[in-house]
């Protein structure tokens, strides 16, 4: 999977998890760039991404993720 495809899927994921149907993601964004992106939401994002793409993202892989771009790279690699 390409990171572009991953970003498209992640857009759906973020929109659902944050209840913001019009959200447009910026790959440079990290937790400080979105309201309500705390450590619990972070776990919810990982789980929702796993469900959306049918993959597993092990804890070691997700621990260092800072930006949405990082997450897209991890998803593309696992899918």
């Amino acid at each position: 999977m390409t990171t572009d495809e991953a970003m498209r899927g992640l857009t759906e994921v973020f929109r659902a998890v944050f209840h913001r149907p019009d959200l447009v993601l910026d790959p440079a964004w990290s937790a400080a760039d979105l309201d309500g992106w705390d450590s619990l939401r972070h776990v919810a994002l990982i789980l929702a991404a796993e469900a959306r793409f049918g993959i597993r993202l092990p804890a070691e892989a997700t621990g260092g993720l800072e930006t949405i771009g990082d997450l897209a790279t991890a998803v593309a690699a696992a899918a």
Binding site: A31, A32, D33, D35, G36, W37, D38, S39, L40, R41
Partner: peptide, 23 residues
Amino acid sequence: QALQRALRAAVEAVTGLSGTIAA
């Protein structure tokens, strides 16, 4: 957006709490 980011980051830097809603 920059102001919102700064508010969220300031709370996290001092308290360790993420997820602040900057309204």
